[in-house]
Nucleic acid binder design. Structure first.
Lengths: 104, 104
DNA sequence: ATCACATAGATAGGGTTTCTATAGATAGGA
DNA sequence: TCCTATCTATAGAAACCCTATCTATGTGAT
């Protein structure tokens, strides 16, 4: 798929709009990107575990349609991290685009 | 530095404007990105070697100011690859941005 | 009732990318 | 002569992301 490091950023962003569980986060990223991203379970869950380990998200179990699911929630560190990551993403995109417009 | 996979794209782009040697490619990317990117030798040369192995660039030795330097040149496969990579980069950026504008 | 599919979560193992660190050589200016 | 900029290169490791595989439950169709 090649997320180029943008998956954690998108996950943090989605969670900043409300706690959610893995499967739904993946679906949301897929639908909002118009199918550009295909978030596989094997990519998503290690990413969620890593973000939790970093302390930018935490999790709790809840019941959804009679089934136990794990909800993820942005921590206050996660909010700061999201701001930083958004700025870094914009900086990266505009830097690449400057190079790709050079030498015209 | 975290190039997020954009270094090969920028290298191919720079070479599409004319053959060049490693050190100059790095300098160009650094200056045109206004210093956002710091292209270390240990990142650049493995990338160049990898692109050459893929056949999208080739190289030859030349003399520059009385010194032997290795020039890199885009192959015809490299031109196609550059087009593909540019399209993919634009697609990726707009897909991420769609997700980052969602749930507003 | 049972079969298929969507939902939900997880890990193993590997490949690619990028990093830091290190090495070596030459040209030009002080 | 020595220092700095130029120029190329590899080793080793960390980070990131992939595919593949596994388990389990709820729901709708047949």
């Amino acid at each position: 798929m090649n997320f180029r490091g943008s998956l954690p950023l998108m996950v943090l962003y989605v969670l900043s709009k409300g706690s959610n569980h893995g499967y739904r986060i993946a679906q949301h990223i897929e639908s909002e990107s118009d199918g550009f991203f295909n978030v596989k379970a094997g990519t998503l869950y290690p990413t969620l575990h890593s973000l939790e380990k970093q302390g930018v998200i935490d999790s709790y179990k809840d019941v959804e349609n009679g089934r136990e699911v794990r909800y993820y929630r942005l921590t206050s560190d996660g909010k700061k991290q999201l701001d930083t990551s958004l700025t870094e993403w914009d900086g990266h995109v505009s830097a690449v685009n400057r190079v790709l417009r050079s030498l015209k």
